[in-house]
Computed example of a mutant assay.
Amino acid sequence: MYKLIAIDIDDTLINDDKEVTPATQQALEAAVAAGVVVTLATGRAYASAQAIARQTGLNVPIITYQGALVKNLLDEKVLYERYVPQDAVRKLFEYCIEHNLHLQTYIDDKLYSREENQKLIDYAALNKTQYYIEPDWKKLLDYQTPKLLIIDDPDFLDELAPKLHELLGEEVHITKSKPHFLEIMHKEGTKGLALEFLADYFNCDLSQTIAVGDSWNDHEMLETAGLGVAMANAIPALKEIANYVTASNNEDGVKQVIDKFILQTI
C-alpha cells in the first residue's frame, strides 16, 4: 500500500495550459481521502509552488527549489533547508559576468537578477513570479540562496554543466529542469533527498512512496521512490529509469497513476 506520492508541477501535474484539470483534482482529493500524503516536488520557488498547492487543497509540507527547501503549507514552518555555499555563489556570479550569461538567484523567496532582459521577463511570466533588479551583484552575496538559475541554449548548457561542476566543486548539485534552465543548488538540494526526508517525517518506508515527474531534475526522486513514474511527455532518459510510464500531462497522467496504484480502480 502506497502512503506518500510526490508530484512534480510543470509538465506533470499541470497541463500545457498551466492548469490542474478537474479530473486530476478529483483524483488528488480521493488520494488524500484514502489517507495518502499527497505532496508536490518542484524546482519552483516556494511562493510559486504554494499557490498551486493551495489551489489543489493540499495541506502538507511541499518540496521546492529542487529539494533545497521543504516547507509546511499550514504554518509555513521550514522543515529542511540547504543553501548554496557562499564561495560557490561568488564564483558563479563572477563566471557569468565574465562570459555574459544570464544568472538569476532567489533570496527570501524573491527572484533577483543583475539586469532586466527578455529571459528574465519570460521566466517571470511563465512562473507568475515578480522579480527584482540589483545591478550591484556583490550585495546579493550578503544573503543565502537555495538556488541559482542560468537560462540559455540547451546545447550550450549541456557543455556548460561539467565546466561549472569543475569550477564550483563537490558541494553543489547541478541539474536541468527544462532544456534551457540550468539550476545550481547545494549538493543535498535534490528531490530524492527531500523525498527521503519527507518519508521519514511521515513514518513511511521508501517502498511505500511514489514519485511522478517528466524531466532530468526528477530522476533522483524516481530512483529513490518505491515506484518511480515518468510522464508520457517525459524526456527519454527519465522513461528509461522509471518503473512505469503514465499518460501525458495533457491526458491526466497523474490521475491515471493515482487510480491505478493508490485507488486501484483501473
Rank of each mutant, 00 (worst) to 15 (best):
Met1Leu: 11
Met1Glu: 02
Tyr2Gln: 09
Leu4Val: 12
Ile7Asn: 03
Asp11Glu: 14
Thr12Trp: 10
Thr12Lys: 07
Lys18Met: 13
Val20Asp: 05
Thr21Phe: 06
Ala23Gly: 10
Thr24Ile: 08
Gln25Gly: 13
Glu29Ala: 14
Ala30His: 14
Ala31Gln: 10
Ala45Met: 13
Ala45Leu: 08
Tyr46Glu: 03
Ser48Thr: 04
Ala49Gln: 07
Gln50Leu: 11
Gln50His: 13
Ala51Trp: 14
Ala51Lys: 13
Pro61Ile: 08
Pro61His: 09
Thr64Glu: 08
Gly67Asp: 03
Ala68Ile: 01
Glu76Met: 04
Arg82Thr: 04
Val84Thr: 01
Gln86Lys: 15
Asp87Val: 08
Ala88Phe: 06
Glu94Asp: 09
Tyr95Asp: 04
Cys96Glu: 05
Cys96Val: 05
His102Asp: 06
His102Arg: 01
Gln104Gly: 01
Gln104Lys: 01
Thr105Tyr: 00
Leu111Gln: 00
Tyr112Phe: 15
Ser113Arg: 02
Ser113Phe: 01
Ser113Lys: 02
Arg114Cys: 12
Glu115Thr: 13
Gln118Ile: 15
Ile121Lys: 14
Asp122Phe: 09
Tyr123Ala: 01
Ala124Tyr: 00
Asn127Arg: 06
Lys128Cys: 05
Ile133Gln: 12
Glu134Gly: 04
Pro135Ser: 14
Asp136Gln: 15
Trp137Cys: 07
Leu140His: 06
Tyr143Gly: 03
Gln144Trp: 06
Pro146Arg: 02
Lys147Arg: 03
Phe156Glu: 02
Asp158Phe: 07
His165Ile: 14
His165Cys: 13
His165Phe: 11
His165Val: 12
Glu170Gly: 06
Glu171Lys: 13
Thr175Arg: 00
Ser177Ile: 01
His180Met: 11
His180Val: 12
Met185Leu: 11
Glu188Leu: 12
Gly192Trp: 01
Ala194Asp: 04
Leu195Asn: 09
Leu195Lys: 05
Phe197Lys: 08
Phe202Trp: 09
Phe202His: 12
Asn203His: 12
Asn203Trp: 07
Cys204Asp: 12
Ser207Ala: 12
Asp214Phe: 00
Ser215His: 14
Asn217Glu: 03
Glu220Met: 05
Glu223His: 11
Gly228Asn: 05
Val229Lys: 00
Ala230Arg: 01
Asn233Cys: 10
Ile235Arg: 02
Lys239Ser: 03
Asn243Trp: 03
Tyr244Met: 00
Asp252Gly: 09
Asp252Gln: 05
Gly253Pro: 00
Lys255His: 09
Val257Ala: 03
Asp259Cys: 03
Asp259Glu: 14
Lys260Ser: 02
Thr265Cys: 08
Thr265Pro: 08
